[in-house]
Write a protein that binds this DNA or RNA. Sequence first.
RNA 1: GCGCCUAUAGCUCAAUUGGAUAGAGCAUCGGACUUCGGAUCCGAGAGUUGGGGGUUCGAGUCCCUCUAGGCGCGCCA
Length: 565
Amino acid sequence: MNRFVEEIKEILKTEVDLSEEEIERIIEIPPEEKLGDYAFPCFILAKRLKKSPEKIASNLLEKLKPKDLIEKIYSIGPYVNFRVNKKKLAEFVLTDIFEKNKSYGKDILGEGKTIVIDFSSPNIAKPFGVGHLRSTVIGNSLYKIFEHLGYKCIGVNHLGDWGTQFGKLIVAYKNWGDEKKLSSDPIMTLFDLYVKFHQEAEKKPELEDDARSWFKKLENGDEEAKKIWQRFKDYSLKEFEKIYLMLEISFDSYAGESFYNKYIDQTIEEVQKKGLAEKSQDALVVNLKKFNLPVCLLRKKDEATLYATRDITAAIYRYKTYRFHKLLYVVGSAQKLHFQQVFKVLELMGYPWAKDLVHVDFGWIKFEKKILSTRKGDVIFLEDVLKKSIEIALDIIQKKNPDLEKKDEVAFEVGIGAVVFADLSTKRQKDINFDWEEVLDFEGQTGPYIQYTHARLCSLIRKYGKPVKKDVDFSVFSLEEEYSIIKKLDDFPRKIKITAEMYEPSILCSYLLDLCSVFNRFYQKERIITDDKNSTDSRIFMIKGVKTVIELGLNLLGIKAPERM
RNA sequence: GCGCCUAUAGCUCAAUUGGAUAGAGCAUCGGACUUCGGAUCCGAGAGUUGGGGGUUCGAGUCCCUCUAGGCGCGCCA
């Protein structure tokens, strides 16, 4: 815990009839800096003491005395506000960052706990569209953030490699497949087949039955079906690897839906033994009516299994294997009901860990205000988006910094960073309108803005030309702008924790934007490197701290921080 | 029909989960020291937080209701 809050607690605890925990919970950071560094709102006491919060605040003020770290106490309306000792703040925060470097904000919160994160999970034989970006980057970022907080993370790519869709593909392949096309451009060919199937099935619904029976065959281990399936899967995985390589994302497990096939009978038996399963319209279901949920289907009338059956099986397997503290499903909000059903069935099966399953849901990526439907063939390939963004980044570099070395490498990092940041910076649950212009705009609240600020900081440190060392003079920090920067830096560990608690990388995004903005304001106003050695050393020490935190923050989002751009 | 999600400046989004005067970016207009990176910074205009009611000392945030959009509701995933 923050030493300043600690001291405020010390100051308050003898004068206020609240427990230390309560005081700590109530202490807040004012919305505007000029109001103070910390505040204690008196509303809660108002009811108990039957006095107005303004009165309580002013009465309290008379009894409170500044201490070591807190140098000023005053009240504004119903708040008691505290000002910290700037010199001490600067010393603590900047030294802490300097010593811990990339471990700044690390925590023991997650010690000994494992978090399994199910993310990305693309469907085999379908192109990797922009729609898959969200799960991929949110999951990746949460992975890194939880790791920073001391958790052991297991990233699972729950590949959509099983199900009736493969029956559809096999039918389409057998009817209209072109061997030559398939080997030369597998993903596009498979995608075309998938779209073609849906077009044809509108006219000839019996195709759907064919598809179902081929999937049934696949599930029963039919050799031909299996061979075709394996081939499609291999093609797809190769394609997905390209994307993961670009984004530098890796997984600890690729156990997809097909992986659980061998455990599925066991699951169904278990559900039946626990008296939860019943026959209904020739299918095997779990009735969840009591809980205001629709029935959960375990087996179709042709005995083939469903998505829910496989997810239930997967959760049990994951618990046995990892003993997770939490299992996060980073999956679109369209599947909310599905997860409610799955979680409920697991709860009814008597697994106490069912409460540790979390659906980290998110909204759609819409294109021109419409939702893309893979079935209908509208898709924007993620690879194209990333490439286009890299291209634009390169153009800008040519224009603004033609002498830069390793332009391609930097353009790559900036281009990818722009797309990833654009996706992460909006709150999960909102739909995103995918707009080329907005995503590829590198000014304002964007990834490149943060990267640019980072590059500028690096440039300053290079110019300084000496190794940055600690034990600088902290009393030179007297400007409001410097103070804002230091306070922001101090807030980083707290923000990381909130980001994790809410499974919301956008919180870290807006933190980084704030930090950059506060620094840029200072930079624009003040010179950092001057003839005054004392002040230069101190300011560079602070600059180093800002650089460290920005780089760390970007990395936790899965974004690179180039030193020049 | 029922359930869930969303609605904040012309546009894209914030608001520390019920607290102080609702803040940023984009776009528009005006501006920035002959030395540190102008992908930057400063200023201006722009708001009945979709409408209405309620709870509360206090509501963009909670409850009710209406409107608009989205998603989901048994053999897809």
